[in-house]
Nucleic acid binder design. Structure first.
Lengths: 127, 127
DNA sequence: GCAAGCCGCTTGCAATTGCAAGCACTTGCG
DNA sequence: CGCAAGTGCTTGCAATTGCAAGCGGCTTGC
C-alpha cells in the first residue's frame, strides 16, 4: 500500500476545486470542514482522515473513492481484475452463469490480445 | 456515510483474530501495530485510521476493503451493480464486447428473476 | 475617504491517535 | 518451588488532526 503523498493529494483537491470555480471558503462550507484546514490540506500540510476526505469529495461532487485512491487508502481496481472480481462475487448469479460469463470475458480478452499481437506484427513490418 | 461504530468494528476484528487462532501480540506483530493499541481497537476504545486498518487487515489476511466497510469508510458494492460498473469501466473491452457482456448479464438476471417468480408460484400452490 | 464583504492563510489549542514501558496473570519446565 | 515465556491490558506521552479566532489583502458600493 502506497504511502500517502499529502502534496499530490492537496494539489488534486485544489485542481478539482478550481475546476468547479469555487473558493476555499465555499468548498469548506459545503464540505463541512474548516476553511483554514482545507487550505492546509490543499498545501499538503495535513493528512486528512478518510472521514474528512469523504466530506471534501461530497463538497466537490466527486466520489469519495477517487480521493481515497489519491490518498493511498484504496487501490485502483484495474479494469480486467475488477470485472473478474465482480462476477466472482456476484451473489445473484448461479455457478453456471458465473462460469459462462467468465469464459466469455476470457474469450474477449484473448481476442483483444490476438488483435494487439497483430498490431505489433504490423508495426514490426513497418519498422 | 455511516458514522464509524468503534465497538462493532473492534468486535469484528477480534472475531477474525480468534477465528485465525492468533493472539493479540501475534496479530499486532504481523500487522506492524502496537499490541496495546490493537487491544484498545478491539475493545472499541480507539478509532484507527485507514492506514492502521489496512495493516490489521493484512495481518488478518483479509482485504483492507472489508475493514473499511466495517469502519464506515467505504460502502459495500452491491453485487449486480458491481458487475455492471466493472464492465462499463473496463478499458480493455471494445464497445461491441462491452455491450455483449452487458446483454448476457441482463439475460441471466432475467432468467434468475423468472426462476424466482416460478419458485414463488410453487410456494403458493403448496400453501 | 469608509464599511462591508470576500479572499487565503497563520496561529494556538483541545482532542485524538498510536506507541513504549510496564503490570498482573497463566502455563510449562527444571 | 522459581523461572521463562506467553497472555491482554493500563498508563503516560509525543505527534498529529481539525478547529476557532483572527490577520492582512483585495474589491465593491456609498
Amino acid at each position: 500500500m502506497a504511502k500517502i503523498d499529502a502534496a499530490k493529494l492537496g494539489e488534486y483537491i485544489r485542481e478539482q476545486r478550481m475546476a468547479a470555480e469555487i473558493s476555499v471558503r465555499q468548498l469548506a462550507r459545503t464540505a463541512g470542514v474548516s476553511n483554514p484546514y482545507l487550505s492546509q490540506v490543499e498545501r499538503g500540510l495535513r493528512r486528512p482522515s478518510a472521514e474528512i476526505l469523504a466530506r471534501i469529495a461530497a463538497g466537490l461532487r466527486i466520489s469519495a473513492e477517487t480521493l481515497y485512491v489519491r490518498a493511498g487508502i484504496l487501490e485502483e481496481r484495474e479494469g480486467d481484475r475488477a470485472v473478474l472480481l465482480a462476477i466472482s462475487e456476484d451473489p445473484t448469479l448461479t455457478d453456471r452463469q458465473r462460469r459462462a460469463l467468465l469464459e466469455i470475458y476470457a474469450a474477449f480478452q484473448t481476442e483483444n490480445s490476438a488483435q494487439q499481437a497483430e498490431s505489433h506484427t504490423e508495426e514490426e513490418h513497418l519498422a
